[in-house]
Design a protein around this nucleic acid. Structure first.
Length: 565
RNA sequence: UGACCCGUGGUGUAAUUGGCAACACGUCUGGUUUUGGUCCAGAAGAGUCCAGGUUCGAGCCCUGGCGGGUCAACCA
């Protein structure tokens, strides 16, 4: 799928991280080099929250003529998989960012990390603890109470070395012992209380297979990898703030130059009504509540992509929301505005009828097919025009007709005249109902003088309707996706029950929908906009999902109000 | 009752480093319009968590409160 939006030069708003970077450049730090990294763990698909981080890391480097690495933080084989690695690379590329030849994995460094651990043991700064997990945990103390030193803390260097080698050689079972850094069990910072740096896991790793049965912990890998890769700014989310002293501690043990990577934290993205927890999203996928990570109802990048979001719209969104340390929550309306803005400007329009109501134009010749010119994009004349077939029988949107219209209903009702877009003025004369009293057909007359949509006598109509020819159309199965949202707790970072966000209307399959035949010949285009109804996306590579349709918030509200009346 | 971080309209972000708070989204009016969209014009909405202090002057500096978040995984 290609990018539909022309690349406008994104002017990235200056944020506090840019401020820091500029000050360092001015001070001559790192010779003015800026080197960032995006370090996802391949344990799930990327979501809109990651997009913020991607834009920040790649964007900051771009802004200051630096470079960015992609590094998979794959230190926990029990959760990781190559499927995730592949999807992450695809999503980062789709967003428009390029890591060049700088693709790394934390697992690339398992050897160096092991040697570093040995060095720490030799220096008396690490020891093997063979107490069970519960004991170790209980000795950690609490945030308000200091911890207790492990009896293993005084083990000799030789013994530690021997233990660690045997750990590596698989002589112990999982959980039997761990390697810990010897720092300070009384530190007010829990992360400095002799943190575990290596644990035994007899799980094959997606890249290193069964080469290792001990794996470094995040804290023991991240800063070192940054250091080895020459990262200057290690940008991560707020919850790692308390890890920073430990990050620095390990780098200090390692470094032999003045250079050191600097960890800077920012607030992760929270969106109203949106579930962003990877754990929850995984559960949705595993329990088949959705069809996959790229289900258009999901807040994943791949889900948004299939929903019709463009890379530029997500980048603009990221820029708009800014970067701070304030742990807030952004209104999804801002995200929706970003895509509406983009599609309005760039998407090809096409007429489609989702819920058809047949209209017979009684004074139009039977069998006649007339082609009328329609503009492809009112925002951009260069997008050209297309020919839309008009016939005696057409479909209009059922919602565009009301037999007993309320006061402010401007569309079609008995006796009123409206315009069929690009076609003619029509007046409703007769409402045909079935035995249940349901409206099945309308009989209208058209004004031949109004061809193209204007009457020579200058009379006005209050509404313009979209329509599709009954005989000259493409029948489609349309799936209406609404994003999953939390009803009760409009708070992105609270865990919620599935029931509160598995809104039953989030996926509606409409089987009798009709779109202009133009769509069939427009495979090269991947993004259209339904006239008036909202936006949808046609992805030629995933026809089984039909048309992905995205109602705008405003239209949804309008509909809700109309229904309420 | 520890450590660290954060408090500016409904939401998010700004404020030339001390000079009577700006922008975007949202909301509400009015206008234009071949779709109740778009576009245009305008309005409402915070006196910057609170209390002191320094200063001619504080959202920015100082002190003390209050409120929120994070941290006690052999997760990242």
């Amino acid at each position: 799928m290609s990018e539909s939006s022309p690349e406008k030069e994104v002017v990235v708003k200056k944020n506090f991280i840019h401020q820091i970077v500029e000050e360092e450049i001015n001070a001559g730090k790192n010779n003015g080099l800026i080197h960032t990294r995006f370090p996802p763990e391949p344990n799930g698909y990327l979501h809109i929250g990651h997009a913020k981080s991607i834009c920040l890391n790649f964007g900051t480097a771009q802004k200051y003529k630096g470079i960015t690495n992609l590094r998979f933080d794959d230190t926990n084989p029990s959760k990781e998989d190559t499927e995730y690695v592949d999807s992450i690379m695809e999503d980062v590329r789709w967003l428009g960012f390029d890591w060049g030849d700088r693709l790394f994995y934390a697992s690339d460094y398992f050897g160096k990390l092991f040697e570093f651990a040995v060095k720490l043991i030799r220096e008396g700064k690490a020891y093997v603890d063979d107490q069970d997990a519960e004991t170790i945990s209980s000795q950690k103390g609490t945030p308000t109470r200091p911890g207790l030193e492990s009896p293993c803390r005084s083990r000799s260097v030789e013994e530690n070395l021997d233990f660690f080698m045997r750990m590596k050689n698989g002589e112990f079972n999982e959980g039997q012992c761990v390697l810990r850094a010897k720092i300070d069990m009384a530190s007010p910072n829990m992360h400095m209380r002799d943190p575990i740096i290596y644990r035994i896991m007899k799980t094959p790793h997606h890249r290193t297979g069964d080469q290792w049965c001990i794996y470094p912990m995040y804290d023991f890998a991240h800063g070192q990898c940054d250091y080895w890769e020459g990262i200057t700014h290690s940008i991560c989310t707020l919850e790692f703030e308390v890890h920073r002293p430990l990050y620095d501690w390990f780098v200090d043990q390692l470094k032999d130059t003045d250079y050191r990577p600097r960890q800077i934290e920012f607030a992760r993205l929270n969106l109203t009504y949106t579930v962003m927890s990877k754990r929850k999203l995984l559960e949705l996928v595993k329990d088949n509540h959705v069809k996959g990570w790229d289900d258009p109802r999901m807040p994943t990048i791949s889900g948004l992509r299939r929903r019709g979001y463009t890379p530029a719209s997500i980048r603009n969104f990221s820029d708009r929301i800014g970067v701070t340390k304030v742990d807030g929550i952004i209104d999804v309306a801002l995200l929706e505005h970003s895509i509406r803005e983009d599609l309005n400007k760039n998407a090809q329009r096409v007429m489609g009828v989702l819920n058809p109501l047949k209209v017979v134009i009684t004074n139009y010749p039977e069998g006649q097919v007339e082609h009328l010119e329609a503009v492809n994009n009112p925002e951009n004349p260069e997008a050209g025009t297309r020919q839309v077939p008009f016939t005696r029988e057409i479909y209009i949107e059922r919602d565009d007709f009301m037999e007993n219209p309320p006061k402010k209903f401007f569309r079609l009702s008995p006796g009123t005249e409206v315009r069929l877009r690009y076609a003619y003025f029509v007046t409703c004369n007769e409402v045909v109902k079935n035995e249940n009293g349901e409206v099945v057909e309308l009989h209208c007359t058209y004004d031949p003088q109004s061809r193209g949509g204007n009457s020579p006598d200058g009379r006005k109509v209050k509404a313009t309707l979209h329509w599709v020819s009954v005989s000259e159309n493409v029948k489609a199965e349309v799936r209406l996706y609404d994003r999953l949202f939390t009803d009760e707790e409009p708070d992105g970072h609270k865990d919620v029950d599935f029931k509160t966000f598995m809104n039953p209307d989030s996926l509606t399959v409409l089987e009798n929908c009709y779109v202009e035949p133009f769509v069939k010949d427009a495979k090269a285009l991947d993004s259209f906009q339904f006239e008036r109804l909202g936006y949808f996306n046609l992805d030629p590579d995933s026809t089984q999902d039909g048309l992905v349709f995205n109602r705008t918030a405003q239209l949804r509200d309008t509909w809700a109000k109309m229904k309420g009346k």
